[in-house]
């Protein structure tokens, strides 16, 4: 869901719940089953119906499939979709590269510092989305701290303009997505029996080889979970791009909002939101099948 806090701490909840096992035998059930109805009705009326109506809206009675034809044939819109997907993928890969060593350190080497490291990892989740974007504006602006340090060190002659565009957007998104990646990978590494690694070492494997042939392959499940989660969230992110993109990076969420706010072509906006929705549903499906596979293995 959306940027950052839109899904804040769900990783934490995820991790908390994944260790929970259902009771083996049939437990008593004294809460009336009918109490599921109100929430199901509520979600059908205010969640499913709006999205379904949006599908109808995207097929104009006069023009039919025209909106979709435009999205998938016009080079401009194809490029927007490509940029959206490429940005999501890029941020996901960067997050993985940065978060994996941190997760490994957190689980295997942090010792009594683990509490501090956990706090550092989840700190961005405590801040508001506006705060995070604002802070990168401050850090990366022409008179900002980063330019100041680079000037002092003599690495650059004059300030570089870097507070708007792909660079700040990528940095800001990586910063806020890292907690979700770490919180997905760390439990997977934690679940690996350290004896497997020990055995590899005793049998003569170097530390690097042990990591590459034992630890890393066994943690792939967590890696996949984290990658899907981050990809999905970046795909729908809006505020970071609105503040830091400076108009240079166009993605589907930005375009959808523009259709609503400026262009006022609601049918076309609806069609674009359905494209974004379709991507989200594919991610959700991947997520569910991953969980089911894991459940099947645990049994």
């Amino acid at each position: 869901m959306g940027d950052g806090k839109g899904a804040t701490l769900i990783g934490a909840l995820d991790a908390g719940i994944s260790v929970v096992r259902r009771p083996r035998r049939r437990a008593i059930q004294f809460v009336p089953r009918s109490l599921v109805l109100p929430i199901v009705l509520f979600l059908i009326v205010f969640f499913v119906l709006p999205l379904a109506e949006n599908v109808f809206r995207s097929f104009d009675p006069e023009t039919g499939r025209e909106h979709y034809v435009k999205i998938f044939t016009d080079v401009y819109y194809l490029e927007v979709i490509a940029v959206t997907l490429a940005l999501s993928l890029g941020v996901t890969v960067l997050c993985l590269l940065i978060a994996y060593p941190v997760s490994y350190t957190l689980v295997r080497h942090s010792g009594r510092w683990s509490g501090v490291l956990v706090f550092i990892v989840i700190a961005p989740l405590l801040t508001s989305i506006i705060m995070r974007s604002f802070s990168w504006l401050v850090l990366l602006s022409r008179q900002g701290l980063v330019n100041g340090v680079l000037l002092d060190m003599g690495l650059i002659d004059r300030p570089i303009r870097m507070s708007a565009g792909l660079l700040p957007v990528t940095i800001a998104l990586v910063h806020v997505m890292i907690p979700f990646m770490v919180l997905s990978i760390a439990p997977a590494i934690q679940a690996i029996n350290p004896r497997l690694e020990e055995s590899a070492r005793i049998l003569g494997a170097s530390r690097i080889r042990t990591f590459l042939t034992v630890t890393f392959p066994l943690s792939l499940d967590g890696v996949a979970t984290g990658m899907i989660l981050v990809f999905m969230m970046v795909n729908g992110s809006f505020v970071t791009l609105q503040i830091l993109g400076g108009g240079a990076v166009q993605t589907l969420p930005l375009l959808i909002y523009q259709q609503f706010n400026l262009t006022r072509d609601f049918g076309f906006g609806a069609a674009m939101s359905n494209v974004l929705l379709a991507i989200a549903i594919i991610c959700l499906w991947l997520q569910i099948s991953l969980i089911q596979r894991r459940g099947a293995e645990a049994r």
Binding site: M1, P50, L51, E53, G236, F238, P253, F260, G269, N274
Partner: peptide, 10 residues
């Protein structure tokens, strides 16, 4: 899992 921008719009 639904992007809020899509949900808000709809």
């Amino acid at each position: 899992s639904i992007p809020s921008i899509v949900l808000g719009f709809a």
